[in-house]
């Protein structure tokens, strides 16, 4: 059983880094769309999400490239199969490729065997398509099963980002060894502000405000305690032109601080592992 050892309250980031910022992009192309009654596929919502695979990811890669920001993409296996070029491009540009199941498979009540198969299949597809080594994971719907962390550790993963319960990474001892958990939050997730079919709260301005507020508070707190900032962003939502501009302005704003560092999840987990094994 995965056991939490501690949240890494005394995390020390590399010299000069006051606040690491992880932009995490969740990338699927309609696999996560809610089904219509009778379990029929929902191509209206599915189509809106497919935007991420066709167009959104490319728009986002362009913005990240413009500012030389490196980030993490959580990718569904089937999306990588359908749109392999974008995943290769992301990897070649220095972004981290991490797993988000094969076909947006929900594992909350899955048998360990089925969950292991999903993880294995996803890793194979993502590695074959991109050439990257897959070390990180986020569960679809952010719903882990009781054995998710153990299964990931046995499969050689270094980190997971499916929990929402802390401001700092946490260290877990799992059946396959240590695993770093990088908790994130849906309180700042783009889809909860602008992503149909979710409630359209606040719109583009609301999204910009919540990202700014989150940064302001964490940046202030990071003066006296370790903090990191992590945003959950959908390629199908923020990939569209108007929220893309919100993302660009947010990156521009953060770049005026020379002590923040955009980082991939794997880098942050690495900084934590070094620290905790001391």
């Amino acid at each position: 059983m995965a056991t939490e050892i501690k949240s890494i309250a005394n995390a020390s980031w590399p010299a000069g880094v006051r606040l690491p910022v992880a932009l995490t992009f969740e990338h699927q192309s309609g696999e996560g769309a809610p089904l219509l009654p009778g379990d029929r596929p929902n191509y209206m919502i599915g189509g809106a999400m497919e935007y991420g695979g066709r167009r959104g990811i490319w728009n986002i890669l362009e913005v990240l490239d413009q500012f030389a920001v490196k980030s993490t993409f959580f990718v569904c296996g089937t999306t990588a199969e359908k749109y392999p070029d974008a995943i290769r491009a992301a990897h070649n540009a220095g972004h981290e490729i991490a797993g988000m199941s094969y076909a947006f498979d929900r594992v909350r009540t899955a048998s360990p065997e089925r969950e292991r198969t999903i993880v294995r299949k996803t890793v194979k597809v993502l590695e074959d398509v991109s050439g990257a080594t897959i070390k990180g994971w986020r569960c679809p719907d952010y719903r882990v099963s009781p054995q998710t962390l153990d299964i990931l550790s046995e499969a050689g993963f270094a980190w997971d980002s499916s929990l929402l319960n802390d401001d700092l990474p946490c260290l877990f001892h799992c059946s396959g060894g240590a695993l770093i958990e990088l908790p994130f939050t849906t309180s700042t997730a783009d889809k909860t502000f602008i992503g149909y079919p979710y409630p359209m709260r606040g719109g583009f301005e609301g999204l910009a405000n919540v990202w700014d507020s989150e940064f302001d508070v964490l940046y202030r707190e990071s003066r006296r305690a370790a903090r990191f900032m992590i945003l959950s962003i959908q390629t199908w939502a923020t990939g569209r032109p108007t929220p893309l501009r919100v993302l660009r302005k947010f990156i521009e704003r953060l770049r005026t601080h020379n002590d923040i560092q955009f980082a991939r999840c794997g880098e942050i987990a690495g900084w934590c592992s070094n620290h905790t094994t001391n």
Partner: peptide, 19 residues
Amino acid sequence: GDGQVDPFDYSERQYGGRR
């Protein structure tokens, strides 16, 4: 409905006690 706690909701709420 199956008697299991929603892991997402549980984790989000746990933030309250921890942080």
